[in-house]
Design a protein around this nucleic acid. Structure first.
Lengths: 179, 179
DNA sequence: CGACTATTTGACCCTTCTCAAATCGGGTGG
DNA sequence: CCACCCGATTTGAGAAGGGTCAAATAGTCG
């Protein structure tokens, strides 16, 4: 799945997926917000609603190149335990996603970069491929211009280094910036 | 459960609850945001993490007076189907909660009022008891002062009417204000 | 190479934040 | 029942971070 590509859309038929690598944006078309309805990172399950309705009720979009695997592995119904695990992961992700809309523009971008890098063992030195500015802007509720300026400042401050469409996190412990 | 009261805190032992009436705020203390980790409205399940760990991993706080019921009803493990339903409701709530941090201050307050009123059959004329300004501010990522001014404007515009600590929604269809 | 799109940068404006002070509410002790 | 206290809400004035609009660059993909 390449960057900035729809994985599936609302009302399509399909099954659930586990994210192996990459970051997925979920979209709820009828939400009064701007449609953005959550993020999913490696290990998370997306499209679980198909276990009940056979059709997707959210759309899914690859923020960065993604690898997905059908879920559950076999063709049987998932056990209560794995659904419960999925539920807990989802709640955790909700809190993290909400945090991406809190604080100064720089804090928001910093948090997003960490979330994108979180599958890595160590944040320091992790290489993260970046979503499009437009997507980053919608997720954080900022504008593309503000995101661009925030990233420029992080680069100036030496917190990140740039490598084509990827960035390298250099200073993961700096500037928590909790208000 | 009265307004502005903790229902349970992180690491306490306890079980899951179904919200019968009222609105609950979930808090994730280690989140980098401001701790706010989600909302739950009537019909939602909170504290499901106790099915796996026996202790709460989020805290819960009554935004307005709440009635809760133990969940699941009996003492048996909930079936896959009810967990799946809970998961889908949670995802829906995530999208709605994210929307509360998007758009102008007035839009955010409007959306929150509708969410608080959503258990009612008809939004028009629904009476909603209000959370404390401080709580409304944290949920929407605005300040108390801005919330106060936004509510004043909604009152001027005739969208809401005031009744002590409650408001009555008068004009639920006006001003979607989607950006 | 050339058309397009994505990103970056600049200048100026507006909403919201800040800091302060005034009111309001409701609970308590006389 | 009433005066008083304390936290919650409201209001004002000024400052600032982001938004907006426009234009210049940098990348991408045929």
């Amino acid at each position: 799945m390449s960057r900035s590509e729809w994985i599936y859309r609302v009302a399509e038929e399909g099954h659930a997926w586990r994210i192996v690598s990459g970051t997925v944006r979920l979209d709820c078309p009828n939400a009064s917000g701007n449609g953005f309805g959550g993020l999913a990172i490696p290990g998370d399950i997306i499209g679980a609603e198909t276990l009940m309705f056979a059709r997707y009720s959210f759309a899914a979009y690859a923020l960065v190149p993604c690898i997905l695997a059908p879920w559950p592995e076999g063709c049987e119904t998932p056990a209560s335990e794995s659904l419960l695990k999925t539920l807990l992961r989802t709640e955790q992700r909700t809190a993290e996603t909400l945090a991406l809309r809190h604080g100064s523009s720089i804090d928001r971008v910093r948090r997003l970069l960490r979330l994108l890098a979180s599958p890595a063992k160590h944040l320091a030195g992790a290489t993260v491929s970046l979503p499009a500015l437009r997507d980053t802007a919608e997720i954080t509720c900022l504008t593309m211009e503000t995101i661009s300026r925030a990233m420029a400042k992080l680069r100036q401050q030496g917190e990140i280094d740039r490598l084509k469409r990827d960035v390298v996190l250099l200073c993961p412990t700096a500037g928590q910036g909790v208000a």
